[in-house]
Design a protein around this nucleic acid. Structure first.
Lengths: 170, 170
DNA sequence: CTTGGAATGTCAACAACGCTGACTTACCCT
DNA sequence: AGGGTAAGTCAGCGTTGTTGACATTCCAAG
């Protein structure tokens, strides 16, 4: 189990970054960074009486307008019942429009209304600002590494949904 | 707001990694990666009837044995009432011991019992395995960048709790 | 064409875990 | 000794995850 417990234990100096202690640091970094990552949107959402679940739905509907509920489920990884509750409130509040599918009437295609797009803008502006500051502070090479590690951390199933391209940075 | 909307718009090629599109990718990478990050511990926790809140408490009690409830609150960023519910179940189940402070009897010092340490091992082994695989796949330089960006993303308040050191990797 | 199974989405009720409010106990300063 | 503050506990509520039951629609077999 404790494969790399001591410095230079398994594999020598080249694998120093794989010690349990280094891994623990990475774990805590993920925990603390994720808090910062969601802090700004959370504040905006709270003003509207929404939560993170609403943010996620709005984000991915904006990214792929006309997507179906089922599509969204695969990406968000929650039950359709959970998602449905969130979508219902967004539709009632006039932020999302749900159109019955033309080809398959069982499907509902989802779109942001104008007001929905406004909230999306506010949320992503806030989140991007934090991201931009972090990227700027860390520099392009760090960003490339950041993306590389995150991608390796995803479930293979979900990596499909993560559209990666144009990593011609460094 | 849309400061870096087009490639080469603001500041030229050197800032390509700050375009809105690149930032959106980073945002989704965080979202998907965090899911992977918590997936393995979540499965173990579910077997014991616990959730992520229990994991966080166990992790930080293990990291700093004898820490007080108040200390933990500052790190976890939840209300003491929320934390208390979690701690109560952990104490009832015999995974955590809560000792009244000697100097200040208002304080409760927290320790993992033997069984608590066993669960902590199982959880962190699982999480480290995922982290190790990601680190190994991405390489030492990517890991250094990963840590750098995450650190820049944290709330300054919390960065204090993130013990960084020995980044002599590259 | 009809019928049975599978897929999509909705409604209802429950559990985990955030939150605020009210409270007890203990400390400390005046 | 008394009053304010700090640490922790108990009670109750809201968001958002869960499972179960169900209506509608599609499609394929007969």
């Amino acid at each position: 189990m404790a494969e790399g417990s001591g410095p230079g234990a398994a594999g020598g100096e080249a694998l120093l970054f794989l010690t349990d202690e280094q891994l623990r640091k990475g774990i805590e970094a993920m925990f603390f960074a994720y808090r910062g990552f969601t802090a700004d949107p959370d504040r905006i959402l709270a003003e509207h009486g929404y939560g993170r679940a609403h943010h996620r739905a709005i984000h991915f509907i904006n990214r792929t307008p006309g997507t179906t509920v089922n599509n969204l489920l695969a990406i968000l990884g929650v039950t359709k019942q959970s998602l449905n509750r969130v979508l219902r409130t967004l539709v009632e509040d006039g932020l999302v429009e749900s159109r019955v599918g033309k080809r398959d009437k069982r499907e509902r295609h989802l779109f942001l209304t104008e007001r929905g797009q406004e909230l999306e803008q506010a949320l992503s502006d806030a989140q991007r600002a934090r991201m931009r500051a972090a990227y700027r502070a860390a520099g392009p090479e760090a960003v490339a590494g950041f993306r590389k590690v995150l991608e390796a951390m995803m479930e293979p199933e979900l990596r499909r949904h993560y559209v990666r391209d144009a990593e011609s940075v460094g």
